[in-house]
Each structure stands twice: as structure tokens, then as C-alpha cells.
Write a protein that binds this DNA or RNA. Structure first.
Length: 944
RNA sequence: GCUCGAAUGGUGGAAUCGGUAGACACGAAGGACUUAAAAUCCUUUGGCUAUUGCAGCUGUGCGGGUUCAAGUCCCGCUUCGAGUACCA
């Protein structure tokens, strides 16, 4: 009987659905949670790269299930996003319709690959029943502040109570700006002033911050959505702009996000990426007074040891200090400079690193020397980091050095023997000198000379603290996340505005559903698309959305026009899968306590500084609230590599319609042209298909080699324009889902990026046919017998089980598949048709090739599904060899092999090896220094 | 610039604790079956030298080192990839 994968796969796909085989419920078994990063359903559908991670996680899920775990393995859609919205702007098609169509297409494609997803738990981020809980979490963040003392989020009422009692006294909380007021001052504030003050502390807050504004997209972007000064989506220029935006106080969690990395099982490189992104740096803040003024300002430095080398100060152009410190004489020049820098996009700032700057006219007093140093303004200092102001030490910082050279400012070296005539000495190594400068009158009693730099830093920090010149400070690079987007297709904020201040709509009225709009682009007046909505006002008394015309700012108020960013919906989706239909809570206590957190998360590295940070933050917040029982959402994380495209080329001779085969092309003047990879097989062009591909090739002519047209190839991104997109459906149609699954895994290690190359797919397909042959031979009926297996057969099987068990645990699926091939070849050679061997073989194959395994399992007479079988244990006793193969080597080089009884003692092995006739040749005239017998069956004879 | 990772045949890749490098697969060459093709099966396949001597030498990006023994460990380079980028 033929291996008819089409019928088999269709049959079991339908059986699994009809019998709800993959639906899971809480039960008494131990849980295991395997999660894939859910996809954004794009219009292009799935290509063969998408299922790579899904197949890997599916294999692991099925394996864990066979091992007796209750496995949660859900799937859903990250359904809000820019492409659907842009498509809507172009065509007027509502994004909801586009999205549903795309989802249906994805689902159809996914269903063909045989995943064990529990579709009953599917989530879609654009579903009101889902974003209810996104809005809910946002409200909780609005109503919380971060208490540094207790190290967690607390209800905002506690903060208000503190203000009423003691003002800001004794407060250690995360805030945008350090404020100081008394209880009386707090009570004297108006309602609006109090709300304004609370914004400084809320975890979700409305903040006036510099944002990445993308004029082309008409929206702001988070830091991780901007790459090299252009938008990650579309590659449009991004400029810095000050705007009032919703923000999440992610920075409050910086230390916990850092510490948490030590408790999860992720790759070192991914952890490192997150550590860099969080960017902890320990240093000191030091106050500098402004000369001839009562003003002062604070700078942050990690090099407190260089206080005696400060020769000027620099402010960021956007710093609030700039207008304050600019003198009248310098005003015109400073304003001209600010104007110029403002016009530069982020991209220009990055590509053009010219030294620019302007003198403010003011001087600062160095608190360690009493010296007055000039205060400059330059865009090499960033407003958003530290205090937006620095002390410049040109001798020991390359940026300060470049600036000093350009504007001819003094350079004072502070490390013994360093040469700063050509470049700065940035290394934190060496012995400090010139501190204090020999020439300067002692202004303070600090002497750092003779200390190492590390000691000097510590000493100076201590001095700063003791003399109240500033404070020891830890800074993080991690910024608060900007949470507003000027878009239509996102979660609406459950927020209305009264007297210019935001208020939350009542929790019981959630979800606040996305309104209909007449068009999807921004309004004429530049408001976000929700500005087009005519029914977008909140009636506080009725607790419902009403017509805008009813706004009276007494009981009916305008609603927020921004929507939430893409990461909002993806931040807690893993919790929702646990209890996807619950309309009372994000997740029930019972479900959360059972499923805990994700044991294995599979997805791409591109989310390292986006989703994987936000999601951890979001979950830590929910943990503080007591909603999530685990502080870290994703215990183990595997990054699947990207599948690149493998493009094929044909070579057309210039000005003709003749195409020349790859190895002959150098004899002609040719133009390489992309050719659809779907009409090329093993780099050989299907000439008929090529002629029909495009009308202009109808009468193309060919110069062949060996009667074939061979195409060239290159690795490129998989994209439509390169004609290298391979659709999984095509592979499934031609070879079947099991072949696709095996082949994707056989391609190489999961974590490695590699080009899609169909060339080897016949190999794995052949393997499945051979496996089929073990059961049927050339007969139409099953050939399985009930005989006792031989030692060889048992050895072959147990070797396989051991290897596959080990490999699955280590996500080394490609070598497992090799092991299957070896085993099937061996059993084929042994003509093995025994049930005792074939049955366990089917079970261990089931995670990889579930359809064929299910078919054979039922053919073997079982009426339950193979998913409910028991993973077989291997028995070492069948793997023990009765002869051991020793490699005899001289001076480490192997010369011959020797088969000896496995239980022969070490001394006997030595003797036999030395006595062998080959040894005589090597031992002639030499002294034996040592004979070593090692466990890996090597006898090494060391000659003198 | 900084951080992390990688480099093995014509190709994808094995080698799990320092122990016979190149498993498995593709491709290629030769052969069997066949009128023929497809399918299937068998043999060979890192390089060089031998092949009426069954073997020898060499070999994991480059240069050193440790070790009886190094693809694997250490030091110094080269190249490629990923992340990050004026973070004071």
C-alpha cells in the first residue's frame, strides 16, 4: 500500500477536531505551559518561515503530553496593528474586516500543519472581550504608584493619604520629578492641581515628554519602534517633539527587570540585550552653583574621580536650564543654535557627528576647586538621560575631548603617565594624579593622588555624600514607555477629560468599545483618527458613550482620542489564555494558580527590547496587585532563527530573449533576473512553467547544460519582489504536513537563522515512505507480527528512544530526525515487523509527524489517540555492547582498531594492545613512556 | 566604537564530559531493475599520494600555547552575523 499522506492527514485533522483531542482543562495532572508568540495576521499570509517556531513548540507540547503532563498550548492573534490601518486609509476597507479575513487565512494555513493548539482558548487583541482587560490593567496602573521602600506598586489612595498627613516628607517613590511640599500645601491645592501633582507619581501617567514623532505615520513611536532614527515599520524619518502623552512608568521597575533576568532560563545573549537596554549605571549626582547667581544645577557622572579635570559644562539643547543660564549677550547666538538643532531629525544627528555647540555666557563653580568653568550647550548631551547636563572632562572622555579640541578648551589629565595630546584616556585604569591640582589653592581637603581610579571614584562619592555636595545615584537607560498612539486601529483608552484632566470611566462599564469613524486618517485639525467619531463622549451619570453634541462638561465629557500601542494587547495575553472566556476577571485565581506561568516560550529575538520588556513589566505590575502568581511570565525562552529566502536566478543574454544556464553564463554578457522559486526544483528550471510564467517568456530560448537549465541562487530576505516566497500550503500539498514538519526541523538548529532551501526535502519524505514500508512492505494489509524482538532490534529501538528523549529536552530536533532515519534503515535491514518494536517507534515519532503516527497507531489496533499514549522509557541493558571497539594510538594518533570483550579489565586491554602485531612496528626501537586506557575506548601508547 | 555569537567537505549540518572529525541528509559519479522514464535499491564520495601494496600523509578561518590526546580549553589575530549606539 502506498503512503497516501493526503488522505491520512485529512482524516486525522477531522478526527482531532471532532473528538476535541487538543482541548485542555484543569485536572489533577502536573501542568506544562508551552506558548508561541502570537502572530500579527498580515495580508500576505504565512510563509514557510512562520511555522518554524510553531512546529518546534508543537513537538515539545506533544512530547510533554506523552510524558503525562497536562499541556496548555494555545494560539491567538495580535490583531491590532498598522498595516490594516494603512490599508484602510488607502481603500476605505474597515480594518476589522481586513483583520478577520487575514485571521481566517492564517487559521486555514495553520490547520494544515497539524498543530495541537487548543483553539477553544483563542484570543484576539481587537476583541472587546479581550481588550476589556487591557483597559482594566491600564486603569489599575493609573490608580497606582510605585513605592521604592516596599519595592512594589501600591494603590494611589495610600499616596494621597500620605500627602494629607505629611506632604512629601519621608517619601521614597518613583516619580517624574522630585517634588517637595507640606501637608498644608497639598490641602491648599485645587482639585486640578492635586490631579496634576498625582500625575507625577502614577504608573500610567500623562506626561509632557520628548517623543519620537513620525510625521509620515502621523503618530509617536516608542524607543524600540525606532531603529537608527527611522521608524521600524516603513522606515520613515522620526523627529523629536515635545508632546503630552500617556506613559507607563516602566523605569520604576528597572531594577526588578534587571534582577529578574537571573531567575529565568533564557539565552545569555538575550539577557545581555535586555541588560544593555535597561542600562544600569552607578554614579553620583553633583550640584554646581552658577557664578554670580543664586542658581544651581545638578549633573550626573560615573567618573566622580575626575572632578579636578572639569574644564567646562555642557547642557542639552532641550534642557530647561538653557533659557535660564543664557546671558543677554549670548542670547541671539544660542537661539540660532537651538533653532538649527531642532530642525535636525534623529537620523541626521546620528549620521552627521560634527561637533557643534554654543557658549551660554554663564559660568559654573566647581564645588571641589572653586574654579569657574564656562557652560556650553551642545546636542551631544541628551536631555532624556541623567539630568540633561554634564561636567566635561576632556582628558578622560572622548566626546568631551572632541568638543574641547574643536572649541579650543583646556584639557587637564588626571592619570599618571597618560598621553592626551592626540586622544582622551577613557580607560578606568591607572593611578590618579593632579587631584587636587598642584597649582590650585586647596579649596577642599580631598586628595585622590596615588589612588587607583576605582578607589578614587569610591572616595569621591563618599566625600560628595558627607559634604552634601550631591548624592550617590544609580541611573538607568530604560525610559518610561510612551503609551499613546495617534491611530484608529488600537485599544481605546477608557478615559474622559474634565477640566483638561483625565478621569477613568467606571471599571464596571468596561470595555469601552472602539467607535466607528467616517475615515481612518487624522482630522484636518491634526487630531488622531478618533477625532472623526461623532459618538465619542462619556455620560458620567448614564455610564455610557453618547453623541459628541451632548458634551456639556458637567455630566457629559469628551473621551480620549488616542489609542494604545501594539504592545498593550500583547503584554498579558499569556494570562488570558489560562481563562480565555472569563468575563469577570482577566484570569480566575484558580486558573492562574494552576497554570502559573509559561514554562516554554518560543519566538523571535526581534522582541528582545520591546514585547519581552513590556510584558515582563506588565506582569510584575499584575504580580504586585496579586493578580499574577508569578513575577516572571516566561520561565524558559527559545528564540527560533529567521528563515531567509533563497532566490533563484536565470541569466538572460543582453538584448535577446535567450537564457543561458548557470555554468555557461560567463561566456556571455548576461543580466541575472529573479525567477519564481516555485518553478525551480533543485536549482533546475522547469522550462515549460517558465514560459507560461510571464507572457514575455512565451517564446524564450535556452542554452542548456547536460540538457538542463541550472539556475543561480542567493540568500535574500523572503519577499514577494524577489519571487522567493514559499508558501507552506504548497509544500503540504506536494509532500504532506508531516514532511513539512520534519523538514523544517531537519534544516538545522532551531535557534539558527538559515535560508529556506527545498533541495533536501525529498530526503525526509523518503524516510516517511520507508517507515510506511516497515508496516506494509509491498502488501495492502498490515504486516505487523507479535514475535519476540531480537537483541539487534531492541538495541536499535532503545538507542532511538534514548537519543530522541535527550534531543527533545535539548531542542536538538534535527539530530533526532537523523536518529529516526538511522533506526528505520536498521529495522528495514533487519526486516523487522514486530509490534513490540514498531509500537514504541510510532509513539516517539508522534510529536514530529503526528498524522502518520496517528494512522499507524490506529492500524496497530488502538482506538484511543496516540496523544494519550505513554512515552516509552529506554533501557540501558539493551544498549550495552558485548564487545568494545578500542582505538589503539601511538602518541595520540590512532593507528589501528581492536575489538575486545567489553568486560575485559584495563590491564588486559593494555597487554593485548601492546602484544598486537601492529604495535610491534611502532614500538620498534622506542621506549614506552605511558599506556593510557580511557573510557572512550582509546588505548594511547606514549613513546619516548 | 561597545556587547554577544559564529567560522567544520560541493551544500545543510553531526560530533552531548578534551577521546577514531565529517553522523544523517542533499548533490554528484558509477551500477542494478526497466523497451524507456519515473520510482526503488546497491556502491563510491574531505583533500593529496597510492590503488596487482589491503595503505600512508594531511585536514575543523589564521598564528601560538596547555595536554598522552584539542573542532572542543587558554592567549593573540582575521572574517562574517546579531544587538546597541553620543547613556557622561
Amino acid at each position: 500500500m502506498e503512503y497516501n499522506f493526503r488522505d491520512i492527514e485529512k482524516k486525522w485533522r477531522e478526527y482531532w477536531i471532532a473528538n476535541k483531542v487538543y482541548q485542555v482543562e484543569i485536572n489533577e495532572k502536573p501542568k506544562y505551559y508551552v506558548l508561541d508568540m502570537f502572530p500579527y495576521p498580515s495580508g500576505a499570509g504565512l510563509h514557510v518561515g512562520h511555522p518554524l517556531g510553531y512546529i518546534a513548540s508543537d513537538i515539545y507540547s506533544r512530547y510533554k503530553r506523552l510524558q503525562g503532563f497536562n499541556v496548555l498550548h494555545p494560539m491567538g492573534y495580535d490583531a491590532y496593528g498598522l498595516p490594516a490601518e494603512q490599508y484602510a486609509i488607502q481603500t476605505g476597507q474597515h480594518p476589522a474586516i481586513t483583520t478577520v479575513n487575514n485571521i481566517n487565512r492564517y487559521r486555514e494555513q495553520l490547520d494544515k500543519i497539524g498543530f495541537s493548539f487548543d483553539w477553544n482558548r483563542e484570543v484576539r487583541t481587537c476583541d472587546p472581550g479581550y481588550y476589556h482587560w487591557t483597559q482594566w490593567a491600564f486603569q489599575k496602573m493609573f490608580n497606582s504608584f510605585y513605592c521604592n521602600t516596599c519595592g512594589k506598586a501600591q494603590p494611589i489612595e495610600k499616596l494621597i493619604a500620605h500627602f494629607e498627613e505629611k506632604g512629601t516628607e519621608g517619601l521614597d517613590v518613583a516619580c517624574s520629578e522630585e517634588l517637595s511640599f507640606t501637608a498644608e500645601e497639598w490641602k491648599a491645592k485645587s482639585e486640578k492641581e492635586q490631579q496634576e501633582t498625582l500625575m507625577n507619581y502614577r504608573i500610567a501617567y500623562l506626561g509632557e515628554t520628548m517623543v519620537n514623532w513620525c510625521p509620515e505615520l502621523g503618530t509617536v513611536l516608542a524607543n524600540d519602534e525606532v531603529i537608527e532614527g527611522v521608524s521600524a515599520r516603513g522606515g520613515y524619518p522620526v523627529v523629536q517633539k515635545k508632546m503630552r502623552q500617556w506613559c507607563l512608568r516602566v523605569s520604576a521597575y528597572a531594577q526588578r527587570l534587571l534582577d529578574g533576568l537571573d531567575t529565568v532560563d533564557w539565552t545569555d545573549s538575550l539577557k545581555e540585550t535586555q541588560r544593555n537596554w535597561i542600562g544600569r549605571s552607578e554614579g553620583a549626582e553633583v550640584r554646581f552653583k552658577v557664578k554670580d547667581s543664586d542658581k544651581e544645577f545638578t549633573i550626573f557622572t560615573t567618573r566622580a574621580d575626575t572632578m579636578f579635570g572639569v574644564t567646562f559644562m555642557v547642557l542639552a539643547p532641550e534642557s530647561e536650564l538653557v533659557p535660564e543660564l543664557t546671558t543677554d549677550e549670548q542670547k541671539a547666538e544660542v537661539e540660532a543654535y537651538l533653532d538649527r538643532t531642532k530642525k535636525r531629525t534623529e537620523r541626521e544627528r546620528i549620521s552627521d557627528r560634527k561637533v557643534t555647540g554654543v557658549f551660554s555666557g554663564s559660568y559654573a563653580i566647581n564645588p571641589f576647586t572653586g574654579e569657574a568653568v564656562p557652560i556650553w550647550i551642545s546636542d551631544y548631551v541628551l536631555a532624556g538621560y541623567g539630568t540633561g547636563a554634564i561636567m566635561a572632562v576632556p582628558a578622560h572622555d572622548s566626546r568631551d575631548y572632541a568638543f574641547a579640541k574643536h572649541f579650543n578648551l583646556p584639557i587637564v589629565p588626571l592619570v599618571e603617565g597618560c598621553d592626551v595630546s592626540e586622544e582622551s584616556f577613557d580607560a578606568k585604569e591607572g593611578i590618579v594624579c593632579n587631584s587636587p591640582k598642584a597649582s590650585a589653592t586647596p579649596y577642599c581637603d580631598l586628595n585622590l593622588n596615588g589612588l587607583t581610579i576605582k578607589e578614587a571614584i569610591a572616595t569621591t562619592k563618599k566625600y560628595v555624600k558627607e559634604h552634601n555636595l550631591g548624592r550617590v545615584k544609580v541611573n538607568y537607560r530604560l525610559r518610561d514607555a510612551i503609551f499613546s498612539r495617534q491611530r484608529y486601529w488600537g485599544e481605546p483608552f477608557p478615559v474622559y477629560y474634565k477640566d483638561g484632566m483625565p478621569y477613568m470611566i467606571d471599571e464596571s462599564k468596561l470595555p469601552l468599545e472602539l467607535p466607528e469613524v467616517s475615515q481612518f486618517k487624522p482630522t484636518e485639525s491634526g487630531e488622531p483618527p478618533l477625532g472623526h467619531a461623532t459618538k465619542w463622549a462619556w455620560d458620567v451619570e448614564k455610564g455610557e458613550v453618547v453623541e459628541n453634541s451632548l458634551i456639556d462638561n458637567q455630566t457629559v465629557f469628551p473621551l480620549e482620542l488616542n489609542t494604545m500601542p501594539g504592545f498593550a494587547g500583547s503584554s498579558a495575553y499569556y494570562l488570558r489564555y489560562m481563562d480565555a472566556h472569563n468575563d469577570q476577571a482577566l484570569v480566575s485565581k484558580e486558573a492562574d494558580e494552576y497554570w502559573q506561568n509559561v514554562d516554554l516560550y518560543v519566538g523571535g529575538t526581534e522582541h528582545a527590547t520591546g514585547h519581552l520588556i513590556y510584558s515582563r513589566f506588565w506582569n510584575k505590575f499584575l504580580f504586585d496587585l496579586g493578580v499574577s502568581v508569578k513575577e516572571e511570565p516566561f520561565q524558559k525562552l527559545i528564540n527560533q532563527g529567521m528563515i531567509q529566502g533563497r532566490s533563484n536566478f536565470v541569466y538572460r543574454i543582453k538584448d535577446t530573449n535567450t537564457f543561458v544556464s548557470y555554468n555557461l553564463k560567463d561566456q556571455y554578457d548576461v543580466t541575472p533576473l529573479h525567477v519564481d522559486v516555485n518553478i525551480v526544483s533543485n536549482d533546475v528550471l522547469d522550462i515549460e512553467a517558465f514560459k507560461n510564467w510571464r507572457p514575455e517568456y512565451n517564446n524564450a530560448e535556452f542554452i542548456l547544460e547536460d540538457g538542463k537549465y541550472v539556475c543561480g541562487w542567493a540568500v535574500e530576505k523572503m519577499s514577494k519582489s524577489m519571487y522567493n516566497v514559499v508558501n507552506p500550503d504548497v509544500i503540504v500539498e506536494k509532500y504532506g504536513a508531516d514532511t513539512l514538519r520534519l523538514y523544517e526541523m531537519f534544516l538545522g538548529p532551531i535557534e539558527q537563522s538559515k535560508p529556506w532551501d527545498t533541495n533536501g526535502i525529498d530526503g525526509v519524505h523518503r524516510f516517511l515512505k520507508k517507515l510506511w514500508g516497515l508496516f506494509y512492505g509491498n502488501q495492502d494489509a498490515l504486516q505487523v507480527t507479535d514475535g519476540e524482538p531480537t537483541p539487534e532490534e531492541l538495541k536499535s529501538l532503545h538507542k532511538l528512544i534514548k537519543k530522541v528523549t535527550y534531543d527533545i529536552e535539548h531542542f536538538s530536533y534535527n539530530t533526532s530526525i537523523s536518529a529516526f532515519m538511522i533506526c528505520v534503515n536498521e529495522l528495514g535491514g533487519l526486516k523487522c515487523t514486530k509490534r513490540a518494536i514498531l509500537e514504541p517507534l510510532v509513539i516517539v515519532l508522534a510529536p514530529f509527524a503526528p498524522h502518520i503516527a496517528e494512522e499507524l497507531w490506529h492500524e496497530l489496533g488502538h482506538d484511543t489517540t496516540v496523544c494519550d499514549a505513554q512515552w516509552p522509557a529506554y533501557d540501558e541493558q539493551y544498549l550495552v555492547e558485548n564487545t568494545a571497539n578500542y582505538a589503539i594510538s601511538f602518541n595520540g594518533k590512532v593507528r589501528f582498531n581492536l575489538a575486545l570483550p567489553a568486560d575485559m579489565p584495563k590491564e588486559e586491554v593494555e597487554k593485548t594492545a601492546l602484544a598486537h602485531e601492529y604495535s610491534a612496528k611502532w614500538l620498534e626501537g622506542k621506549q614506552i613512556r605511558k599506556v593510557i586506557v580511557v573510557p572512550k575506548k582509546i588505548v594511547n601508547i606514549v613513546l619516548g
